[in-house]
């Protein structure tokens, strides 16, 4: 495989990944042997019913969690066995997360929330502020930089979260039901934003249980009971 053709590069590779949570005397098998390859600049939907393991996969792909067994390679490097500092560094530089419930710091303004990843990247305050304001402008929140999260609508909050995910220019965006808490109109706007970000050249992985949303992606990965299920499809043809 050649590094020259970046479009075909396998960016993320999961091999036989399992995730087991201890639950008192028993154990919950959230993932039961997942094999998955994701190329750079793909737009992928991870689809499945509640409790199927979608979020767990996303956390592992985003280096927020590590597999119980199996291997995960990101950008050619093995992730299992990295220490918390190294994982934090990867999350900071390569990954942008967007969550269903936004996960903004409640007492920080929109601008301060967007600055947060840059704080941990060691960027100085002036540059941070300028950069955060620019990205907020990009997601259409130029007028809301000084607002606190509870002074923003759901759609606006999710835009702040997206701006925060973008601000360190990661190549991968991971979104866990980003429209789950939004009305249909804001949801559609957020979805359009993700499509745009994908077109700009980012790898986008979107977790959802909504077939309609999933159909917007290039490829749909269906999860059932901790396994990749039948009918995972490739929409590449449809999109172009």
């Amino acid at each position: 495989m050649s590094r020259v053709d970046s479009n075909n590069e396998r960016l993320m590779i999961l091999s036989d990944v399992t995730k087991v949570y201890p639950m008192g005397d028993t154990q919950v098998e959230a993932l039961r042997g997942v094999n998955l390859q994701i190329k750079s600049r793909e737009f992928i939907a991870v689809l499945g019913p509640s409790g199927s393991g979608k979020s767990t996969i996303m956390h592992i792909l985003g280096c927020l969690d590590t597999p119980t067994s199996g291997t995960y390679h990101l950008d050619g490097a093995a992730i299992q066995g990295l220490n918390p500092n190294e994982l934090a560094e990867i999350r900071n530089r390569k990954i942008g997360f967007v969550f269903q419930s936004f996960h903004l710091l409640p007492r920080a303004t929109a601008c301060e929330n967007v600055e947060l990843p840059m704080v941990f990247a060691g960027i100085n305050a002036t540059d941070r502020k300028a950069c955060a304001e620019r990205v907020l402008d990009q997601v259409g929140l130029k007028e809301r930089t000084r607002h606190l999260p509870n002074e923003l609508s759901g759609g606006e909050r999710q835009r702040v979260a997206i701006a925060r995910a973008l601000v360190n220019r990661p190549s991968i965006l991971l979104a866990d039901e980003p429209t789950g808490n939004l009305d249909s109109r804001s949801g559609a706007e957020i979805l359009a934003l993700f499509e745009e970000l994908h077109t700009e050249g980012r790898t986008v992985i979107l977790v959802t249980h909504d077939e309609m949303i999933a159909s917007r992606a290039q490829r749909v990965i269906r999860i059932l009971d901790g396994r990749i299920g039948q009918g995972s499809s490739d929409n590449h043809g449809r999109k172009e």
């Binding site: 985003g62 927020l64 918390p84 500092n85 934090a88 560094e89 999350r91 900071n92 530089r93 997360f97 996960h103 903004l104 710091l105 409640p106 947060l116 990843p117 941990f120 990247a121 925060r164 360190n168």
Partner: peptide, 16 residues
């Protein structure tokens, strides 16, 4: 704790 989780998700190291 939720805020600590958020900070870690965007790249805070334990030392931070």
């Amino acid at each position: 704790t939720p805020q600590i989780g958020i900070k870690m998700a965007v790249g805070a190291k334990p030392l931070h």
